[in-house]
Design a protein around this nucleic acid. Structure first.
Length: 190
DNA sequence: TGCCTGATGTTCT
DNA sequence: GAACATCAGGCAC
């Protein structure tokens, strides 16, 4: 694990989530390189009723309790994957859900994987997983290395970030742990 | 444009 | 057996 990345991610999810906005994800699959920018995130931790880690460590959420800088992928609604970046110290069940990304490179191959175009390509957690070819085989993957890598760019101009309540959940809806880049067309609808 | 619903597997009660 | 951090398609307006 890359030490700079560890230092960046080794903090509470609610702190890391807004700072992940604007970061780059690089995915390599079948020789294709795809690069996307994170534009929407949500924080989850064990104090949070909507989090997978709220009811303690289980086989499914084990990755969330591991070291920061790894990928937590889970399967939901019978047909969708969602991906999270594990944050905070080992033993703490916290992660940041990647809700939307903006394609930068390899858009053609994303289109091929998802059979959609435009902002419908990656403007939702399950959509971006499909576009980037992410499934449970990547659960627990080290995000400092390909085939799926997180790159934290040096920040030049501050981003315009909006903080709201989370969406698509039934518990703890009023917790303001959703963050997105203002006026970005790839941010999910609600 | 917007609500409703079906699809469908895994996890936990 | 129910809930689920979802999406896409259908149909009404």
């Amino acid at each position: 694990m890359h030490t700079t990345l560890t230092k960046f991610l080794d903090r509470p999810a609610s702190i890391v989530a807004p700072e992940l906005l604007g970061c780059i994800l690089e995915r390599e699959i079948n020789g294709h390189i795809m690069r996307v920018k994170i534009v929407e995130t949500e924080a989850y931790d064990e104090t949070d009723a909507a989090s997978h880690s709220f009811n303690g460590r289980t086989q499914r959420n084990d990755t969330m309790y591991g070291k920061s800088g790894y990928l937590y992928v889970y399967f939901t609604y019978g047909m969708h994957y969602c991906c999270n970046v594990v944050t905070d110290k080992e033993g703490i069940g916290s992660a940041v859900l990647i809700r939307a990304v903006e394609p930068l490179e390899g858009v053609e191959y994303m289109n091929e994987l998802r059979n959609r175009v435009g902002n419908e390509l990656t403007n939702g957690p399950a959509k971006l997983c499909q576009a980037l070819g992410i499934d449970r085989r990547l659960d627990g993957h080290d995000l400092s290395q390909l085939p799926f890598r997180l790159i934290v760019p040096s920040r030049d101009t501050p981003l315009r970030i909006v903080q709201t309540n989370r969406v698509g959940i039934t518990k703890a809806k009023d917790v303001q742990w959703r963050f997105y880049i203002e006026a970005n067309e790839y941010v999910s609808k609600p």
